[in-house]
Amino acid sequence: MIALLMRDLRLATRAGGGFGLGLAFFLIVCTLVPFGVGPEGGTLARIAPGILWVGALLACLLSLDRIFALDWEDGSLDLLATAPLPLEGAVLVKAAAHWITTGLPLVLAAPVFGVLLHLPAAAQPWLLVSLGVGTPALSMLGAFGAAITVGLRRGGLLMSLLVLPLYVPTLIFGAEAVRRGAAGADGATPLVFLSGITLAVLATMPFAAAAALRVNLR
């Protein structure tokens, strides 16, 4: 498992791996929003939690199809399926690699972008924690979507349609935690729900994703 993780990380960080692309996308979203709604600080501060969460979510979506597509093309996915490591474990590792290369940079960069959007300082820790807790669920659900659409032509667009509705609960609780933090309230309740969703997703989705992969490899 460790070897697989290291291999995926190396592939992602190499040139052409698309590493950092999600981060750049996130930055562009956070730059474009003020152009759309106007530079007024109060408005920006009010919508900042939502923008940051939606931006992170879309940035995450951007690189999802790479989770399985490359391994599908060169056939290493077939090798993984016949390897002694259960396919569920391989899926989990792939999702983890996606999170480390996409989710983690987003989490670390989010406070900087929060400053750009006038996010109140009180909300910064909530933003960091809620993204840190929520993005693994985004990666894992994305791995499920990628597993379903891996063999398809034009799979990317379909995958967005399948994955985005699954992101609804995560987005609601994540953004709610930041919003409560920004209002000076206690965001612990949505955060607990968010953690619950993430843990449930991490526990169950590898099985669904592995089932979908097996169908596609048939």
Binding site: L166, V168, P169, I172, F193
Partner: peptide, 15 residues
């Protein structure tokens, strides 16, 4: 999966 998340969304939206 969709069924689980449809129900989950229903309650999340409530919240």
């Amino acid at each position: 999966v969709g069924s689980v998340f449809a129900v989950l969304s229903r309650y999340a939206v409530n919240f």
